[in-house]
Simulated assay, not measured.
Amino acid sequence: MSDPAAKTARPRPGAAAARRILGPDSFARSKFEEGLHTFGAMIALGIGATRFAVVDIVRGRFSWEEFFLQGWFMIRVSLLPTVLVAIPFGIIVAVQVGAVAEQIGASSFTGAVNGIGVLRQGAPLVTSLLMAGAVGSALCANLGSRTVREEIDAMAVMGLNPVQRLVAPRVVAAVAVGLMLNVVVAVTAIMTGFALNVGTGVTSSGSYLGSFTGFAQISDLWLAEGKAAIFGFVATIVACHKGLTASGGAKGVADAVNQTVVLAFIMLAVINVALTQAYVSLVPQAIA
């Protein structure tokens, strides 16, 4: 006769894999301790995935097939939403900047304010939202469903490291896709602002482009691309961690997806503020 208590104590699907991959789990932690444990597990997962990616690429063992499959998957789920978000974002920035510039008689600087604002802040911010929302949720759902079906346990039993086989290619793909999405957002938003400001007569095309090229620096582009790469990396690590620790069936996967989006949004917002403040403090700004 089976013991009801034994059934109750049976580990949930995916728990064994999470313990093996991300360290022992504890069910008697405070919220603060649980947060520290989660943050530490994400750092360990990020370091492990980066190490596997670098070593496998150098030794020629990297799964490029998985990289291209995941990259194409991320592009499919994020490219159209990125364009649809970038266009109204460019319109909002152009309208607000154009109205203020016209009131204070600085319409000739509209291109600089609009373009540099989009390049430094707008494009990376929109990229972070799409990486956390569209890409992160999709990755978490995919890995979470594998975890609750005990596919991750099966990989471990066969001697395959899930971090090496699943997480590392996704991290590299997310960084590459983040760089691409950032360019798409920047170009779309800047072109939208240019068409709106020049089309409505706020400023001339020559004045708009002249002010933008006069104040913009190549370091602004590097800042935006650096942010996009970091955002893609962080969002993927959060999504993979939550997916690999999902448990409790379909509801557990849904909860993991919700946690991924919220946590990634918060982390990316904090990182964005820190990077922007460091850039403004360390990089001399153009004055002409």
Rank of each mutant, 00 (worst) to 15 (best):
M158W: 00
G226F: 08
K251D: 09
F27E: 10
A250R: 11
I92N: 11
V100H: 11
Q259F: 02
A288M: 10
Y279M: 07
P13Y: 00
S78Y: 03
V280M: 10
S30G: 15
A6R: 14
A106V: 06
V58N: 06
R12K: 10
I87C: 10
L166S: 04
P13E: 00
M267E: 07
R61A: 14
E151S: 02
A278V: 13
L268Y: 01
N114P: 04
R10Q: 15
G232K: 12
C140I: 00
P81M: 08
I57M: 14
V257N: 06
A49Q: 03
S211Q: 13
E225A: 15
V280T: 13
A112D: 14
M42Y: 00
T213L: 15
F89V: 14
Q259N: 10
L268D: 02
L179M: 12
E150A: 04
N197R: 03
V118E: 10
V171I: 03
R20Q: 12
G117E: 11
G249Q: 07
G144H: 01
R170Q: 10
A106P: 07
V167W: 00
L209I: 14
A288Q: 13
F39H: 01
Q96A: 13
S145K: 01
M131N: 04
A246P: 04
A49Y: 02
A186M: 14
V97K: 02
G122T: 11
V185M: 09
I237W: 01
G117M: 10
G232P: 12
T192P: 05
V198A: 06
A86F: 11
V185N: 12
R170I: 00
P284D: 09
T192Y: 02
Q103V: 12
G232A: 10
V135Q: 05
A235V: 03
P4T: 08
A53E: 04
A44L: 06
D220M: 09
Q164S: 13
T236A: 08
V148T: 04
C240S: 13
F231K: 10
T188V: 14
F109M: 14
Q285L: 11
G23I: 01
L139H: 00
I47K: 00
E225W: 15
A174I: 04
V135E: 05
A274G: 07
